[in-house]
Design a protein around this nucleic acid. Structure first.
Lengths: 348, 348
DNA sequence: CTGTTAGCGCTTTCAG
DNA sequence: CTGAAAGCGCTAACAG
């Protein structure tokens, strides 16, 4: 199915770009008048303005952002750095960001660092290079944040905080979500609850573990280090690790999976070994994805307002860009425990 | 917090941007030499080059893309227009695109038109404005394509074709996927197979319906118009529509859901009314998402190489940007039918 | 109200 | 090998 390249309208026709000057000539006025007419501010005779607008429309004029940017204004581009767009979590986040940014008439430049800090830094450099009006950072690592903040670019961290001062953040209260989830299991009578994470270095993993501990403290149930399984970021075969862990700890009656990735591994492993859920083993996930409400039994999960988080973060950034030089702030959104069929009293 | 200019490195300070001129002064050479030194092409004495590079690194020089772009080159930005980033399908697609674009040292500008053509056009205009090197279009509608192509911007359409000539495309063979899926149901003995779509105007829906029909033709089974349910784009309550449809056609023994959105509605409705799957009703989905392999029974589905499609499309675009003025081409990727538990012989 | 003028930061001839 | 100079397209004083 190959096509021809038609003579004009289509194709390669690298016909001369229509510039302000061209329009000015067309209308018989000066470039600056044309600029003012189109920009809308500054005085222009209505009649001239109309003629300029007509010519612009007729010729298909498209303003050149680079020229405008070069002149001093920022590019109006908002950078978004995520660490894995294939993960539904980040996709939702990006969707929330995109929506708010588009509503403000800007565009999102998306970079996926695949969890690799050097990629993140390259992304940050690219944002700097294009004079992004601001940047949203969702990945781990603080080098990118440092670089951007050091150059005076407004930054908002999303979901994770790198610890860099003077930078806003929007997060979800991981500790509280975890505490509620594990508290729910404890209230049902579970006493040997495993927690599976893929990192405990960054705010998210760390706080979820903290919440797990806090819940035990609340309930006066002693903690056991052996019930903590940290798979590490990007484990080769998480399900196998979960399997080994479950084999080693047959006394476990419930599992708290600290995010959607580990939840999937845990779920598959439970299914593989035909463990009755919740009769034989209860399960709670942190992060509530489509599949969790579609499986049988539905997964009890901590729902995070992910889209909302992206949206709020973007709006905060936009405010900051507009001029807010005030104190930096951290906004925290609340997660919500959704009870479904995967949790019940132990030992039934 | 007004711009103090800190000694160096750290602060928030809107300290004067480091430009080539600044570096040239620092090194005691001319701007053009500095430019050549950093650009890497053109002759520069090795010793001078080293000094320039050192100064650039020390001062934290970041080239200004707008200036470069203005000078004539394109911005190196690649536009990506999708119609719903919250949909896992588009998220995967975007991930594939991002990966290829980043590998080529460019960045992706992401616009989500939410299925609204006017938004798509605004996005296209923005791409033009920023002199995007090329654009990938996944949404319905041809106005955006026309606009972009008309301005000489390389465009590759992904998943859908608008019918605009002189523009490459990468798609998945929907017809074949649908034909196999429905053929599978027919082979099992089903004779009253419903097909649920959300549009039949664009290439995807149209071709899936075509495949549905072709399969019937292959098997010599007569078609019945009443078995086609077209929900229309963005239905208010797809599940309710599915419910009404199933009520009206109790003789149906299998359902072919033409994409992941309608599949979810169908699945939920089947679950809600406790229809035994596959005993009472078989089901196949076009598009294979996480949840479909996690539910019980697993959904038989047509797997589309979505990430791969985005990746290929981006690579094709990049080639085109590099200079390929050759014939436009359409690459078609093959889907694959994944058999799981949701399909079986009827009337058991 | 409108035209002139001066760059923004960079690349790229074109002479030294 | 290096420097001077000319803009890319646009905006923003500043005079008319």
């Amino acid at each position: 199915m190959s096509g021809r390249t038609p003579g004009n309208g289509g194709g390669r026709g690298r016909r001369a770009r229509v510039t302000l000057r061209r329009i000015a000539e067309e209308v018989g006025t000066s470039q600056s008048t044309a600029s003012r007419a189109l920009a809308g501010h500054g005085y222009v005779a209505p009649e001239v303005k109309a003629r300029v607008e007509e010519a612009a429309a007729r010729l298909g004029y498209v303003p050149d952002i680079s020229a405008r940017t070069l002149k001093g204004h920022s590019s109006g581009l908002v950078g978004l750095l995520v660490s894995d767009l294939r993960n539904q979590f980040y996709a939702q986040l990006a969707a929330g960001v995109e929506q708010a940014v588009a509503a403000a008439g800007h565009q999102v430049v998306l970079v996926d660092d695949h969890g690799d800090e050097s990629q993140a830094v390259r992304g940050a450099r690219a944002f700097l290079s294009m004079r992004a009006a601001g940047v949203l950072l969702a990945p781990v690592g603080r080098e990118a944040t440092d670089l951007l903040v050091g150059h005076g670019t407004p930054v908002v961290e999303v979901d994770r905080r790198s610890g860099v001062r003077s930078c806003d953040a929007v997060t979800i209260d991981s500790e509280r979500g975890a505490r509620e989830a594990v508290g729910h299991l404890l209230a049902l009578g579970h006493r040997r609850i495993a927690v599976v994470l893929d990192e405990t270095m960054w705010a998210t993993g760390k706080n979820r573990l903290k919440g797990y501990r806090a819940a035990h403290r609340d309930a006066g149930v002693p903690l056991s280090r052996r019930l903590v399984l940290d798979l590490g970021l990007r484990p080769a075969d998480p399900q196998r690790d979960v399997a080994a862990f479950l084999d080693a700890h047959p006394d476990i009656t419930a599992v708290f999976a600290a995010n959607n990735v580990v939840a999937e591994a845990v779920w598959h492993e439970l299914k593989r070994r035909d463990t009755a859920v919740p009769d034989r083993c209860s399960m709670v996930s942190f992060d509530d994805l489509t599949w969790m409400r579609v499986v049988e039994p539905g997964l009890t999960a901590v729902r995070q307002p992910v889209f909302e988080m992206g949206n709020r973060a973007a709006r905060l950034l936009l405010e900051r860009i507009e001029g807010g030089q005030g104190r930096t702030e951290t906004r925290t959104l609340e997660p919500e425990l959704i009870l479904r069929g995967s949790t019940a009293a132990p030992g039934r």
